[in-house]
Design a protein around this nucleic acid. Structure first.
Lengths: 248, 248
DNA sequence: TCTAATTTGTACGTATGTATG
DNA sequence: ACATACATACGTACAAATTAG
């Protein structure tokens, strides 16, 4: 039903979020200024200001006085989700990142997989399996499935250059994620790939991500329990912005 | 140095956050209305509105048109931190919660502990050790230290009635937290307390919480890997408010 | 049911300051 | 010096929700 219309600042926000989600506005691109929004939509400048200011607070935009408002790049988005690219994580610790690709293919999903990814069993999906290293020591086994329509060129990418996570974020900012963290005893093959001693535990992160309410990826990420920790900060600490980017 | 003064709406926000953090304003208590803030501080109503509105968005306050603005209760705060009381978690799944207390005492910290908790080695601190059960099956071993000054009556509490987490939140909303999640092989004693099979992994959460920039608790939470998962949602899903509370 | 008072929510208009190019 | 763009602040107005009488 929804007879009632949303407030104008909210309509403006959703208009812009939609453009970001659909890819019409890409990371680092300029969004209309407050005054442009005034001319375009007829709202007052304070209303346009509120829309852009709140989008900034929510991490969708980066704004700078005298410059303009820009769509956040995927780093900021991943910060929003507390999900960082593993390569960034490693290099930010001052270590050397490397990777080995075990599989990169287009496959038919199993029954379980087609159910989880909410697709027809006859639609092919991408599968990537790779190990990520920090200073030549394995720290993550990535086993990920990607919906074909979302990233048609997934199979052609060189994932030793850009991680799947970073590549997917570059296509379109992911706007929803769910992850489950658990501790497991790894299978023999996983244990070997991660060069773990027998009977040592694994930290397993199972993650789904959505774009515009459509599930686009499903992945399992295995970490050696004694070589990896998942860190979370909550509270005012979060309120730090990095930036120092060039625009245009 | 900070010659430059903060914007007035920000000063107002910090004024109110300080009162919440210090306990001068407790959960569910009324905060001054916009018009009262106008009279008290001389700002315009829109400035007072912005301060209260942002505190609402950040989860510090619950506002209702026609009623007023109130400090969020600890449930909302824990939502902010993504840290729920284990008892709530269990009962919200429809299971029965119970617990066994192993230790509840005032102790002298070890060297490591006094360093971690940033206190003098001669100051006593509280120690609680207990097991939490879901339908009589152990799901968490809690091993927590609490600074004495923060909760002087900690030792007298009946933690079979209220969990340490809920009790601490009731004293003062925690406004900062850090947690590290890892997978470990539990020691024999932990493995027995959690009724785990030999060599099964544990999910270990090590958590520190602060109030007003002062570390008040440090705890380790052990979960059987096959009976516990840590769930995180990120994105627009988070934007749900429950409420239905009585005010006055 | 009606009215009035209070409180929040939204919207507009205006003004001034600061940062950038 | 000037134009552009964001940041803050004040003032006003009306609407919607709630409570008190």
């Amino acid at each position: 039903m929804q007879e009632k219309q949303l407030p104008r600042y909210q309509q403006l926000k959703e208009l812009i979020i939609d453009k970001i989600s659909s890819g019409a506005l890409k990371p680092l691109e300029r969004v209309p200024s407050e005054n442009q929004l005034v001319k375009m939509t007829g709202v007052s400048r304070m209303t346009a200001n509120r829309a852009l200011r709140e989008l900034n607070n929510e991490g969708y935009l980066d704004r700078k006085a005298g410059i303009g408002s820009f769509v956040s790049d995927f780093k900021v988005n991943s910060h929003l989700f507390e999900i960082k690219s593993i390569a960034d994580e490693v290099t930010s610790r001052g270590s050397t990142y490397s990777s080995v690709i075990l599989e990169q293919s287009l496959i038919l999903p199993t029954n379980d997989l087609s159910r989880i990814m909410q697709i027809n069993g006859t639609s092919q999906i991408f599968h990537i399996k790779m190990v990520h290293f920090e200073d030549s020591i394995p720290i993550q086994l990535e086993d990920r499935y990607v919906k074909r329509g979302f990233a048609p060129d997934f199979i052609k990418q060189d994932f030793s250059e850009i991680t799947p996570s970073a590549y997917l974020s570059s296509i379109s900012p992911l706007n929803e994620a769910e992850q489950v963290v658990s501790a497991i005893t790894p299978s023999l093959s996983i244990s070997e790939l991660l060069q773990m001693k027998k009977d040592k535990p694994c930290l397993l992160i199972t993650r789904k991500t959505w774009v515009r309410k459509v599930l686009v990826t499903y992945g399992k990420f295995y970490h050696p329990g004694d070589r990896y920790e998942l860190l979370g900060n909550y509270g005012p600490i979060m309120r730090k912005k990095l930036s120092n980017k060039k625009h245009d």
